[in-house]
Amino acid sequence: MSLHTEALEGGFASPVLGAQATFRALMDAMARPGTTRTAGSNAAPPHPLGVAQGAVALTLADHDTPVWLSPALANATTKGWIGFHTGAEIVSSSAHARFAFLAAGEPIPDFHGFAAGSQDYPDRSATLVIELPALTGGPTFVARGPGIKDSTQITLQGTPADFLRRWAANRAFSPLGLDIVFTAGSELMALPRSTDLQALGG
């Protein structure tokens, strides 16, 4: 397959219903942080975009939402794929992005580089969509907050060692902050800014 056709194929088999199903998975995930949903069963984004990750792009991005891509995703194929299927402008400045997509294994850049919203409009913040090797099997974090009954444990694999500190910093100026959607293959889990994370036993 040529680079060109790869960028044109792999959208939702049925754009309307594919987007609806992915959105529902995302909405449920955002409403219940720590729970895992599947998404993108009929999308085939080009490597290294994950299936669910690509489906999120197809569902939410368009010409009104500048998109930032991590170095591993900023190649002709993935750039072309997101551009062709969503019409979103790919921006090099992370501060202007509404959505940021990061490939698995890449360092997660400083959160301060992304829009966190303003006091008047905290909704004008970026959503990061980060591919991980797996959504389970990593260090245990205890999550509390809206959407979570009492508390729940999450074990994301592949988050940076200082993730808890960075997440706490993201929450320090609540209600401002980023929201994250972690994806791994066809699975996704959301981490809205409202979720408090602590180390197990911490």
């Binding site: 955002m30 939410l60 209600p175």
Partner: peptide, 19 residues
């Protein structure tokens, strides 16, 4: 239309993140 739905869906997700 799909563009409108996307716009509303983005708003819903941010609304959930900022109860």
């Amino acid at each position: 239309d799909e563009q409108t739905k996307r716009m509303i869906r983005r708003a819903i997700l941010k609304a959930i993140a900022i109860p």
